[in-house]
Write a protein that binds this DNA or RNA. Structure first.
Length: 854
RNA sequence: GCGAAAGUGGCGUAACCGGUAGCCGCGCGAGUCUUAGAAGCUCGUCCCGUAAGGGGUGGGGGUUCGAGUCCCCCCUUUCGCACCA
């Protein structure tokens, strides 16, 4: 141990030592309880940013803590190394995506090592290696066998800038999730995964992770899945055999329907209008709606104006027998429900707005209930203002009126009974719809896992046989930036023979969405080099599910929904035996920095020029200080506003602790000084106070770890350090009892500092006379002893009428009566109660006394 | 617009079950050491007031002996959703 703290030297030394001793290497071990600590794997963009530092520091602290608590901790890392930026770089710089990616990985691996994150590096994986993506393809085949993947022509979300398809999740809000470019629609043959088959389970299983996952993530997923219960109702079209099926959650309002409205793309439209005089008008309208949808700039802007056209068709309300005009309109979505709705202007805001614009009739059929308990306690004059005009739709439940035989029923009952009626009569049925769409995984890109399918002229779509996996990407490809997948122009890749008939065939040239990789990568960590399977189910059974997952909130829906789905799929093919892959999820807050020339705090990014290079920080302050600061500056889920002056505080703290250890290391590392615990009476009052602080701190930090409240843990460590420095006993004149308390405090401080600043902790631990490293010896997390943490003396505040007026001293077991007497006798207190009647004295043992006077 | 969460010193934050509001740190101020500066160390730092005391957790009301914490209304901010029938 040197006299001075040189972060660089210490950090290098211990990073090397950890490598040599394989300190973080783990294997299955049935005798020890396992703990799987996982952080979201990074995309190898080239450089670590502060968000990564935060993410991995949070995870690493927990990994260290659990190791010190005796767990067998799996803490792995890998690379989400397929994806767009590599291809963009290839186009721009004329290099190969593989070279670019691997160079970035090498650089970032070095950065992670310099940060000293405690990974089991032997388990490192990368999505772009055939050893990994082979299993993406294998899963694809398994799902193909089970009918969980299928191909269809579909209108897809297309990012014109990146020239690729985006999933619904990736084009949320109408813009590309990566580059914010407005998304357009395009028709393509696409592969889909039937995630909607699992919609119900994805919702139901949330109860297994409630409490472990942030509520808002669950809410976002729930909204995304968007389950709604209602009914299908068929409206016959007059003069034809056709029926239009609508979906409604409010069948109780059906007597108020004044139109049936179809989406512009509704297939029945073209069919039914054959020969109609209105045909061209409607077609023109439909084309206009499509055009605006295509040019639709930003969905963040205000809602589009509702537009529609009367098709001239007449529908018949199956309940009332009334005839209704059939309209086509832009506000009905083909993708949701059946692409057709019954329009009930009186009880639906959108229908109301539409009816206002096109002066469709508005028929009220639900009356609000104003006094539910009174018979007849409802008001039929709903929503009428002084001008006796309805200004809004009334969308609440209520009492049915003007609804034939159903009048007088409550909405709640009518919903059920009218659905049953429709079922019995054969013109409708109960229905559950979801907003969730099937997961489109085809990407017209090179840098992804090739979809293992072959197209044969004779046999059609033929899956690649398992034995032929992986379907490898070509070593090189041309990147022209023209929009065609580079794979399509690589003849050696495309042309192949049919596995069935041996005839001439061509390969699928689309690759998979990279979210496929991240859906299951953490299972691969359990068995990263397995050449025969994605992973050995036995190993996965030992290590998974993940106890704690840490990552950004931006993956709340996409990645975290896909991975939940994937786990259920793997369960169904017999690979795992649980429903949910992640028991606890922590979503860390963003790291932001001031954008120069403004007063706005934004996420650090190269384009804004507000990035901070972790390497620079490590060089200037050391990895320990950077990590400590990042964890101390704010609770992990909060936004973290970067400020470099804050790091100075972390450095100062580390130096003070280091200095303290240095002053004592000679005396403490001497084996002759290691006595057994002295008797209580040998400790001075000050020594007992330090012990108390030590044990209180242990209890506090141990508790904080359960909730990952690192900021308060670090504050507690600082308090302990302050208490140690206030103890002011010099090594040369310390009594054995003093040495004992100092050792107890310093060792606890060093051990509890390990999760936050592991290098310096190791160095100090060695300096205190322990060889073999913190994990090498049988070191365990310190134990808080309750009897030592208890206060000997308490300061009890005394209030008069709720205002603080004095303080009395007491012990924790001072009886209530004595507290009361002492409070009333206190001189300061007496001056406040003199001349008043004491009405009441409230004594809260160990807490306070409140005297109520008049 | 709908839904959720949150508002505490100059700043990041802390406060168990309702029980001394402001722990820890940043910043700032004073002092000390130094040829000087930096670092270090010591002290101070919610506001008003010389003091006694008074006020104070976005605003207003309520429950309670006692409210940052519980209830109601309002304001602001952040996040999510946004024609999902």
């Amino acid at each position: 141990m040197d006299e001075k703290y040189f972060p660089e030297k210490i950090e290098e030394k211990w990073q090397q030592r950890w490598d040599e001793t394989r300190a973080f290497t783990v294997e299955m071990n049935d005798e020890r309880e396992k703990f799987y600590c996982l952080e979201m794997l990074p995309y190898p963009s080239g450089f670590l940013h502060m968000g990564h530092v935060r993410n991995y520091s949070i995870g690493d602290a927990l990994a260290w803590y659990k190791r010190l608590r005796g767990f067998n901790v799996l803490h792995p890392i890998g690379w989400d190394s397929f994806g767009q930026p590599a291809e963009q770089a290839a186009i721009k710089r004329g290099i190969q995506p593989r070279d670019w990616t691997e160079e970035n990985i090498n650089h970032m691996r070095g950065q992670l090592r310099r940060l000293g994150i405690s990974y089991d590096w032997r388990r490192e994986i990368a999505a772009h290696t055939p050893e990994f993506y082979k299993w993406d393809q294998w899963f694809f085949l398994k799902m193909y066998e089970r009918g969980l993947v299928y191909r269809r022509m579909s209108q897809v979300n297309w990012c014109p800038k990146e020239e690729t398809v985006l999933s619904n999740e990736q084009s949320s809000g109408g813009v590309c999730w990566r580059c914010q470019t407005p998304v357009v629609k395009k028709d393509l043959e696409q592969w889909f995964i039937r995630i909607t088959d699992y919609a119900e389970q994805l919702l139901a299983d949330m109860k297994e992770i409630e409490g472990g996952w942030p509520e808002r993530v669950l809410t976002m997923q729930r909204n995304w899945i968007g389950r709604s219960v209602g009914a299908y109702v068929d409206f016959a079209i007059q003069g034809t055999d056709a029926r239009v099926r609508v979906f409604t959650t409010r069948i109780d309002t059906i007597y108020g329907a004044t139109a049936v409205v179809l989406a512009a793309e509704h297939p029945l439209l073209a069919e039914l209008l054959e020969g109609s005089s209105l045909k061209t008008d409607v077609e023109q309208f439909v084309e206009r709606v499509r055009a605006t949808a295509r040019n639709r700039t930003n969905a963040g802007e205000e809602e589009e104006e509702k537009e529609g056209i009367n098709t001239g068709l007449i529908a018949i309300n199956p309940f009332s027998g009334e005839t209704l005009p059939v309209w086509a309109a832009n506000y009905v979505l083909m993708e949701y429900g059946t692409g057709a709705v019954m329009s009930v202007p009186a009880h639906d805001e959108r229908d109301y707005e539409f009816a206002q614009k096109y002066t469709l009739p508005i028929h009220q059929v639900i009356a609000p209930i104003t006094h539910r308990e009174e018979p007849g306690g409802f008001d039929t004059q709903l929503g009428m203002d002084q001008s006796r005009e309805m200004r809004h739709a009334f969308t609440d439940y209520g009492l049915l009126i003007n609804s034939g035989e159903w009048s007088g029923k409550l909405s709640e009952d009518a919903l059920r009974e009218m659905t049953e009626h429709a079922e019995a009569k054969g013109f409708g049925e109960r229905a559950v719809t979801y907003r969730l769409r099937d997961w489109g995984i085809s990407r017209q890109r090179f840098w992804g896992a090739p979809i293992p399918v072959i197209y044969c002229e004779r046999c059609g779509v033929v899956p690649v046989p398992e034995k032929d996996l992986p379907v490898r990407l070509p070593e090189r490809a041309e990147f022209t930036g023209t929009g065609e997948s580079p794979l399509a122009s690589a003849p050696e890749f495309v042309s192949t023979s049919c596995p069935k008939c041996g005839g001439i065939a061509r390969r699928e040239t689309d690759t998979m969405d990279t979210f496929v990789d991240s859906s299951w990568y953490f299972f691969r960590y359990c068995d990263p080099r397995n050449p025969l399977a994605a992973f050995d189910p036995e190993r996965a059974a030992y290590w998974t599910p993940v106890e704690q997952y840490v990552g950004g909130i931006d993956h709340a829906v996409m990645h975290l929904l896909y991975t939940r789905f994937w786990t259920k799929m793997m369960r169904d093919i017999g690979l795992v035996s649980f429903n949910e892959p992640v028991k606890r999820l922590m979503t860390q807050g963003m790291v932001t920095n001031l954008v120069e020339g403004t007063n706005e705090w934004k996420r650090m990014s190269k384009s804004l020029g507000n990035g901070v290079d972790p390497d620079d920080m490590i060089q200037a302050y050391g990895s320990d200080a950077v990590r400590l600061f990042v964890l101390f500056a704010a609770p992990p889920e909060n936004e973290l506003r970067w400020s470099e002056s804050g790091i100075d505080g972390a450095v100062r703290f580390l130096r003070r602790v280091y200095g303290m250890v240095w002053r004592w290391h000679e005396r403490l590392s001497d084996p002759a000084q290691r006595g057994s615990e002295p008797e209580m009476e040998e400790f001075t009052a000050r020594a007992r106070a330090l012990r108390r602080k030590t044990h209180q701190t242990i209890a506090r930090i141990t508790e904080d770890f359960e909730e990952l409240h690192y900021n308060t843990s670090v504050a507690a460590l600082m308090e302990l350090q302050n208490a140690l420095s206030d103890f002011k006993v010099e090594p040369q004149d310390a009594s054995p009892a003093d040495v004992y308390v100092i050792r107890e405090a310093l060792e606890a401080l060093v051990l509890m500092l390990t999760p936050f600043a592991p290098h310096i902790a190791e160095e100090m631990w060695e300096g205190l006379g322990h060889a073999g490293g913190i994990l090498g010896s049988e070191v365990r997390w310190p134990e808080a002893r309750e009897e030592l943490a208890r206060k000997e003396e308490l300061e009890i505040p005394v209030q008069v009428n709720g205002k603080l007026r004095g303080r009395i001293m007491a012990t924790p077991d001072t009886p209530e009566e004595a507290l009361r007497a002492a409070a009333l006798a206190d001189e300061k207190v007496r001056s406040w109660i003199e001349g008043h009647d004491v009405l009441k004295v409230i004594v809260v043992p160990q807490r306070l006394v409140n005297i109520v006077v008049r």
